[in-house]
Structures are given as structure tokens and as C-alpha cells.
Design a protein around this nucleic acid. Structure first.
Lengths: 367, 367
DNA sequence: TTGTAGGCGTTATCAG
DNA sequence: CTGATAACGCCTACAA
């Protein structure tokens, strides 16, 4: 069978080899239409001998269906997206679809390129965790081409597409309320918010409370929940205990955590609004020899493996990324199947997992 | 532009709309051949208006190149593969390729399906972390179709394809030697080895040492390195301190770790041969109130985030999955470009990161 | 049951 | 510079 570096055999080659027409060979190999047992056997033997295997591209070309979907995540090495992807892949496989994955590094230009590449590849649906909540023309292009889109972890009200999210505001609210219930009044915050979109603190009309302006995004919503919880109980909302860092610069997270925990009026508790922030706060507290929860209570975000292995095990807001991925994919396939359903924002529940890093406010350490 | 649910416009539609030939429109839109500035502008305007976008499937069909590669990992939610994938995706993007990802759950049938799907989709190359070291016909099929394959984290000598691995035996040898240097003589082992492939302990000819039979796989190679280190120093190699669990059943890891640490002659140190084993040993030691490293030293495998956050921070063998992913993808693209290169086993270095979980053997706790 | 013809959307070739 | 035509590999009509 040493036949040089010949090009891949096609149905035509097989047909010739047996001495039947292309359509007969096609019928036998593709498993459609009628073929007599005898010729089928002949054709299959020839196919085996030549090493024939069908060309999915040509098949897609004819049928107009590629049986593949696209996924655009910010960073597929991030445990959140890795798990979400796992959920997406599982559902895709069950549906007989392949998943093409790309990561955008949270950069709009990369995301645009990725979406265009996927659309050119004729994916039948797209799951996107968009970097921007304002610039969405590339997603509009998908909609225009009748390629359904499901948003993951972000919701864009204007776009009219499904999304799968958690209720970030409520989750943060619950987390901070847990701290308030334990008697904490001075509660710090560390959140990943890009400098360009520094949220504006604005008063809630008719009250003395504060909230945050700006479009809904996980980090901003979590800040909003934090402020709402504090506001309702009349606890301190000093700007000095609200710290932001850019997710592009991990070092800044540590720096801000250190600044927060070094305040002369140190917060007795900290709410870390994402998993990187959680790691920063925990690490810095250790490094500063602060005892958790005696000196400072910590509530983190995301139930990553390490949060239950450290000492003390951390109280965290747990999301279920794989559930979110599955839900997104299931919604997407419902659209691909053409089911007529309302556009929905699917909210996957979160859970506050109380462990050992939060405790009743101890000896006031600030004064 | 309300044109119902019309099918996507093609070059033909654009050409008609402008009143030029299909080939001219094709040249303008595809960016090949000569087109006058004037007609190009006209054509582009029309394309915009109609919402034209190229059909990558048709293009692939014509050109015979899909500009995509496939990746088959055991579990893309596993941090090792997630990071490796990240490396693969980055290199692919630099090369203008898309990556189609699938996971096999370490099951041979799923892997076979995945490889076939990818091959049918005409990927131009394949990165696979094969579940089996013996059953590889599906990989042979790839080779037969002139689709280059690079193996990740596994090496199959018979197959004649490139692979990217770490030197697992050497890494384990170094880890265990580190423990021996600290005075440990009774060193336990926990490794993920499926019951079906229980490695046979066999004597090294002409010596009193033991080694392990069986094909090269990460876990087996690590056991081999463990035995070699012990053998060279004449330390104990009791079967009772060598514990295996099936990676399919995480609970078993904890059970085996508990059994190991409950021996009346408890090992003074444990080598955990993979990241799940590391977590099991660490967790069980904590649960049993054993002090690390006073009561038992631990060397783990894989430098996952948590290993440096726990108390004590763990001494581990660090691999660099993203480097491995990048290396695999780079090798793959060299093949795709048709470079004539020898088949190689690329060995990415590992590093023993010594932290606080290993110490000189303290008060003997076994007697 | 089998064969013939045509087309999916793009691009390469050739002629004008 | 532009246009006509064919071809990539498969599948669906339709005819025999």
C-alpha cells in the first residue's frame, strides 16, 4: 500500500476502484439510499483498502451544517472558564457537535477577531463572555447572520440575546450581610475594576446611601451589592476601604490588598470580589501575620480548590461554572434546533459557603 | 434592509448587485488578483450593504486547508490541560489557526470518536494526550492521512510521532532523593494507577533493587524513579508503603492516603506522584492532625496555586504545562509547514521547588 | 438497485 | 484589469 504521498482518496476513487458510479459509492459510504448488500461489501472493502474517510468539509458545504459551535472565553486557563468550557464541551458532545475554543485575554480586538474567525468557519452557534459591555458590533454581526449567541457571565440588555449569569449583586449582598451579621461594621472591599471604568459612587436618591453607576458587569454588580448591604444597615462606606485593581496587572491586587490591610483604621473584615482578589487578600494577610479571622475576617469569591485547603478554610461565594457552561450550551442548542423561545437571562444560583475565615468581630484592632 | 430570513449573501449576490462578474467580486472580496480601485470600492460598498461575509467552509473546500488544529485532552477542566491548552491556543492564534478542543475523559472510546471527528473536520494537525499506550490505531489513521500528530504528556515509541513530555522518572528520582538527603528511609508513595495496569515489581537483574515493569506512562515512570532512588541508597521498598488509586475514583485517593498514614510503621515522608495524590495526602495528614513536616514530610507533584498557599507550603515537582502546550503546538506547526525534521521526544524540564513541607527526619514516630 | 447531472461558495486558470 | 469556466468532495434529484 506504498502509494507515495498521494492525496486523500475520495468517493470517486473508491467508485473507480470498484467499478461503480460515484453515487452508488456515496450511498454505501454515506449510509443513505439503497445499495445491494453485495456492492456495499465491495465498496467498503475498497474504501478500507484505499484508506478512505469522508471529508467533513465537503459534507458541511453541501448540507450547510458544520455541527460545530464556538466558544470565546477571556482566559481558558482560568479555572472559571476551564470548568465552564468543560460543561460546554460535554453538552456539545452529547449533541454531536464539536466546540472550537478561543480566548480573548479580555481584549476587545482579540475577541472581535475570534468571533469573526468562528463566524467565517460557519459555526452554528456562539458562546461568548464579552470583554466589553458597550462595544458589541461583532456580536451583532452574528445575530445578523442568524447565528445564535449566548452570553456567559455577562448580560447585555441591548443585544437581545440569551445570557447565563449569576446574580452577582445578590451574591455580594449576601456575603457582606453575613459579615454584618457577625458584627462587622468596617468592611473592606477588593475588586477587579479597570482604571478606565472606575465606577462612580453616587447617592441613592432620597437616602444617604451610596451605589455605583455604570453598566452591569460582574465586578461592578458585586460592588453594588456590597454597597447596598452596607447602606441598608447604615455601616461605613468609606472610599478608603474600597480598593480596585486592574485584572491585567496581578501585582496590583497584592499592592491594593496590602494598602487596605495597612490602614490605621484597618477594616475588621474584607470582601474579596473575585478569586484573584481572594488570593491577594489571603496571601497578604498571612504575610502581614494577621490572624484570620481573629484580626480580620475574609469572605472570598469562587469556591476554588485551594480555598478549602488553606488554614483557615475560607468562607466564599461559590459559583458553579460547569453548570453555567452546561446551561449556556443547552440554551444555545435549543436555539440551533430552532425552538421558539423568549430571550432570557438565565440566573444560576450561587451559594455562600461559610467556613472558618469569618467570625464575630473580635477585639477591635483599629483603635 | 429588512429582507426576511434570507440566506447569507455570497460573492455572486454581491457581484450581481454591483453588476460585475463573480471573479471580479471574488478578487476584491478575497484580496487576491488585480481589481481597479474604483470597482473595488463599489464592491466593498455592496458587500457592506448586503452584509456579506466570506464562507470559510467553501474556502477550505477550494483551498484544501482549514487552518485549524485539533486538541484531545483527558480533561480540559484539569489545570494541567487547561494551561497546556492555553499554550496551544496562543501558538495557534499566532499562526492564524483555530483550535478545536475535545476531552476524552481518559476513555479510549471517547478519544477514538474525538480523533475521528477532528480528522473528518480536516484539521491539519492533532495534539493528543492518549489514554492508552497500547491501543493506537486511531492515531495511526491520522498518520496515514498525512495529518501530523504530536503527543502531549505521553510518549509512544512505536508510533513514530513527536511527543512533548517531562522526564517523569528523573523528576520522581530527584524528589525522592531530596527526601533521602533529609535522612528519610521509610518513604511512602501514592500514585494514580488503574487497577487493570497494576505495575509488577520486578528485580533489577544482578542487584537486589526493584523496578517496575510496563510501558512508559507518567504515573508508572514516576514509580520507577521512586524505586530507583530508593534502590540506589538501599532504603526500604516495602510494598505496604506503595499505594495506588484509580484516577476514575477520587475517593479512593483519600482512602489510600489514610491507609498509608495509618500504618503502625508510618512512613516519615511521602511522595505524592500527581496533583490529586498530593491533595489527598495533604488533606488526610491535616485531618489526622499530623504535623507537616514534623511528623511527616510531603513532596507533591505539580505546582498548582494552592500548594504555595497552604500551611506549610508544599515542596513540589513543578511542571510547566503551558510551556509543554506551546512546545507541542510549535512542533506541530513545523510539521504542518512541511519542515523535514526527525521525530523527536521533546523533554521539557521540571523543577523541584523546595518549600516548607519537607524537613530533616525528626523524632522517629514509627516506634 | 444503479447511474447521470447539477450545485453548495470559493478561487485558480485562462482568455479577452 | 475583467470575465467565463472549471474544480474542490459530497449529496440530492431524477431518470433508467
Amino acid at each position: 500500500v506504498a502509494q507515495g504521498r498521494a492525496r486523500r482518496p475520495t468517493v470517486i476513487d473508491v467508485a473507480k476502484h470498484v467499478g461503480v458510479s460515484v453515487s452508488t459509492a456515496g450511498r454505501a459510504l454515506g449510509g443513505y439510499g439503497y445499495v445491494s448488500e453485495r456492492t456495499r461489501a465491495l465498496i467498503e472493502a475498497a474504501a478500507d483498502e484505499l484508506g478512505y474517510s469522508p471529508n467533513g468539509i465537503a459534507r458541511s458545504m453541501r448540507s450547510g451544517s458544520t455541527r460545530s459551535i464556538g466558544f470565546v472565553g477571556s482566559d481558558i486557563a482560568n479555572p472559571f472558564f476551564a470548568e465552564a468550557m468543560r460543561g460546554v464541551c460535554d453538552v456539545a458532545r452529547e449533541a454531536g457537535y464539536a466546540a472550537i475554543l478561543t480566548n480573548s485575554d479580555e481584549r476587545l480586538d482579540a475577541e472581535r477577531v475570534a468571533v469573526n474567525v468562528l463566524l467565517d468557519k460557519q459555526v452554528e452557534g456562539l458562546i461568548v463572555s464579552p470583554a466589553s459591555v458597550t462595544d458589541t458590533i461583532h456580536l451583532a454581526r452574528a445575530a445578523q447572520q442568524d447565528v445564535p449567541v449566548v452570553l456567559l457571565d455577562r448580560h447585555l440588555p441591548g443585544l437581545g440575546v440569551d445570557s447565563v449569569v449569576v446574580d452577582n449583586e445578590a451574591a455580594a449582598y449576601d456575603a457582606v450581610t453575613h459579615l454584618l451579621d457577625l458584627g462587622h461594621r468596617r468592611i473592606g472591599l477588593l475588586a477587579a475594576i479597570n482604571p478606565s471604568e472606575q465606577p462612580q459612587l453616587v447617592p441613592v436618591p432620597g437616602t444617604r446611601r451610596l451605589t455605583v453607576s455604570g453598566a452591569s458587569r460582574p465586578s461592578v454588580d458585586r460592588v453594588r451589592g456590597y454597597l447596598r448591604a452596607l447602606g441598608e444597615r447604615g455601616a461605613t462606606t468609606a472610599r478608603s476601604v474600597m480598593r480596585y485593581y486592574s485584572s491585567a496587572d496581578p501585582e496590583e491586587g497584592y499592592a491594593q490588598a496590602a494598602a487596605l490591610l495597612s490602614l490605621s483604621a484597618r477594616p475588621t473584615a474584607v470582601f474579596a470580589a473575585d478569586n484573584a482578589a481572594t488570593r491577594s487578600v489571603f496571601t497578604v494577610a498571612k504575610r502581614m501575620q494577621l490572624r484570620v479571622p481573629d484580626h480580620v475576617s475574609i469572605v472570598g469569591f469562587d469556591d476554588l480548590e485551594w480555598t478549602s485547603l488553606v488554614e483557615p478554610a475560607l468562607t466564599v461565594v461559590a459559583q458553579s461554572p460547569s453548570t453555567m457552561g452546561r446551561a449556556a450550551a443547552e440554551r444555545l442548542f435549543a436555539r440551533i434546533r430552532g425552538e421558539v423561545i423568549d430571550v432570557r437571562e438565565i440566573v444560576v444560583p450561587t451559594e455562600l459557603v461559610v467556613r472558618a475565615s469569618t467570625a464575630r468581630r473580635g477585639r477591635p484592632s483599629g483603635r
